[in-house]
Design a protein around this nucleic acid. Structure first.
Length: 595
RNA sequence: GGCCCCGUGGUGUAGUGGUCUAACAUGCCGCCCUGUCACGGCGGAGAUCGUCGGUUCAAAUCCGAUCGGGGUCGCCA
């Protein structure tokens, strides 16, 4: 094995162009591919910046040539050589550095490498376990390097933008207090306080509000957050938020500044033009038209209310739903009247997964309407449905009936599914919007109490606060979510900053005075020492970068992600600990759960 | 906790009861090759088919359990 002694890297592989022709350069990197012609060897050398072709020949340097014969995949190399133009017929247009090559006069093998378990290249299809076990090799692949470099760029742009706007980056604790609301906490036992636990933060929410009380006026943090809930493609137990809070602002100011920031980020990071201001949707409208509080607005197919059109038919299913106060709604899948019967049956199953009890359809074919339900309806009623849905020949109406709370989300899922099947979703499109006027509370039938939809520090709209004691369900909050292509990218609110209002909200979610004091007493007390009106927002950095990179999972933009069972295959976390460690922490494992 | 998909040489796949002594591609090893770029040619090694149990004269193949991965519902203020 050779050392680097006396050689200093002068260039990176990817930066070389015809401008460098004639120069002697020193390059370092990994051996990506070798083409050995017996009397002539080509090596593609890869580093973070890209790849370049090296040429070794006995005519150039016999020692370097013979060394090159022994080089294998992923060996770490340093080479000294001269950049030269390729002959016209040997130019490789598929390679960024394809105009030139480097003739090697000195080759050093800095380190050998075992043959990697998978190819170090883009677009591979390999088992997740293998990729995660050898994450350092997976991360060596150019596309993964691009993803993490993009992530770095986005974080830097966030800091640049917010710094210019007068924001101060402040770190808040990772060892914090467990609170009853929200997701399950990750707990950390305290050695010096036996029997007591810290919680890792689900978000820096309370600390950032305290920073407003402290007079920082504009705060941000790129903050790690922890939630002990089940994982998804876009959910990891630890994830990163861009957390922001501002004093002396109203909702308008927050929304305007944040959409400007996001437009800046997308422009600078991926060159996308994002028009501002963003469209705004009320929560009720979003649920009514799209059945979701984070609708994918890249395509239409809005839900259509047929309640009045179908009222008074002989169809018992609809009549029963209507009698119970439910609704009948449909989506119009344009041009899909020829849907195979088998697919329709599949759709019934599909809505069943989401709690849909049934699905009616009307196919507007050239021979008339094919449907299992039209026989229950008068011609006039059918005409009303056709008019309400704007149905034409070739269209397919998918119709559901249920209470709105069930119907909307299920039909919303069906809308998404049909959008996907009909290829209506343009992957290149970026459809941003704000969803505003969220309900303050939603009723939890399991706990039989009202819970904060956003969090309990969200301010109710001024005109709705009077219902706090009487009718929490009708209160709208000063909350907002930024959505992009059906993903919630960020959410926030204008906060409560007065003790008495905060106490009323705690009461509304069933916290007694004692509990409120025990959990949040310090915040309530802080509110009495001159708290400015304030509000803020937090963005999911992982999701934002995932969307920018066009990846299907945030695992692709996190250096060391966890599996669906929250383990790290590379480091084998979590793991058992020694009895000694447990004893120090005053922790006893009485309830042993499998393995 | 529920539902769905996946697990076969290093990697990706084929094989759905006997002809499997497991096929193909790629990678790997050896030899040849002075303009390739997914170089090419010739030869070779490499798999008890995730694990355990069952059915059967016979199991990669059927059944059950289990482990691991992925997607999703619930959950995620």
């Amino acid at each position: 094995m050779d050392s680097l002694l006396g050689l200093k890297r002068t260039h990176s592989c990817g930066e070389l162009t015809k401008q460098h022709a004639g120069q002697e350069v020193v390059l370092c990197g990994w051996m990506a591919r070798r083409r050995d012609h017996g009397g002539l060897i080509f090596v593609d050398l890869r580093d973070r910046s890209g790849m370049v072709q090296l040429v070794f020949s006995p005519d150039i340097d016999p020692a370097a040539f013979h060394k090159a014969e022994a080089v294998r995949t992923e060996y770490v190399l340093a080479i000294r050589g001269t950049v030269r133009m390729r002959d016209a017929e040997t130019v490789n247009a598929n390679m960024a550095t394809g105009d030139i090559e480097v003739t090697g006069v000195e080759l050093r093998i800095l380190n050998a490498a075992k043959t990697p378990p998978f190819y170090i290249q883009d677009d591979i299809d390999v088992d997740e376990v293998l990729k995660l076990k050898y994450r350092y090799l997976d991360l060596r692949r150019p596309e993964m390097q691009r993803n993490l470099i993009l992530r770095h760029r986005v974080a830097k742009l966030m800091r640049d933008f917010l710094d210019r706007q007068g924001f101060i980056e402040v770190e808040t604790p990772m060892l914090t207090k467990s609170t009853p609301e929200g997701a399950r906490d990750y707990l950390v036992p305290s050695r010096v306080n036996p029997g007591k636990f810290y919680a890792l933060p689900q978000s820096p929410q309370i600390f950032k509000q305290i920073l407003m009380v402290a007079g920082f006026e504009r705060y941000f943090q790129i903050a790690r957050c922890f939630r002990d809930e089940d994982l998804r493609a876009d959910r990891q137990p630890e994830f990163t938020q861009l957390d922001i809070e501002m004093s002396f602002v109203d909702r308008e100011e927050v929304l305007t500044m944040m959409e400007n920031m996001v437009a800046y980020l997308f422009k600078e990071a991926i060159g996308a033009d994002v028009p501002t201001p963003f469209p705004r949707l009320g929560y009720d409208e979003a649920m009514d038209k799209y059945g979701s509080d984070k609708p994918d607005l890249r395509f239409g197919m809005e839900m259509i209310d047929l309640t009045e059109a179908v009222r008074g038919s002989d169809f018992k299913v609809f009549e029963n739903v209507l009698a119970a106060g439910g609704k009948v709604k449909a989506i119009n899948v344009k041009g899909y009247a020829a849907i195979p019967r088998r697919e329709l049956d599949g759709l019934v199953e599909y809505v069943g997964q989401y709690g849909g009890k049934g699905l009616a359809w009307m196919c507007y074919t050239a021979e008339g309407i094919k449907s299992q339900i039209t026989k229950f309806f008068s011609e006039a009623a059918i005409a009303k449905v056709t008019a309400a849905a704007g149905a034409e020949e070739g269209d397919l109406l998918l119709i559901m009936a249920d209470a709105p709370e069930t119907l909307n989300p299920v039909l919303g899922q069906l809308r998404l599914e049909m959008g996907r099947r009909q290829n209506l979703i343009d992957p290149a499109k970026l459809s941003f919007a704000w969803v505003i006027d969220f309900p303050m509370f939603e009723y939890d039938p399991e706990d039989k109490r009202w819970v904060a939809m956003h969090h309990p520090f969200t301010s109710p709209r001024d005109e709705d606060a009077v219902y706090l004691g009487s009718d929490p369900g009708r209160i709208r909050a000063k909350a907002y979510d930024m959505i992009l292509n059906g993903t919630e990218m960020g959410g926030g609110s204008i906060r409560i900053y007065q003790r008495d209002l905060q106490e009323k909200v705690f009461k509304a979610i069933g916290l007694s005075d004692e509990e409120a004091n025990e959990q949040f007493g310090f915040l309530l007390e802080a509110f009495e020492y001159g708290t400015p009106p304030h509000g803020g927002i937090a963005f999911g950095l992982d999701r934002m970068v995932m969307l920018m990179a066009g990846r299907p999972s945030i695992r692709d933009v996190i250096a060391f992600p966890k599996t669906q069972s929250a383990t790290d295959i590379m480091s084998q976390a979590p793991s058992a600990v020694s009895p000694r460690q447990l004893k120090d922490l005053a922790v006893k494992l009485d309830i042993v759960v499998k393995k």
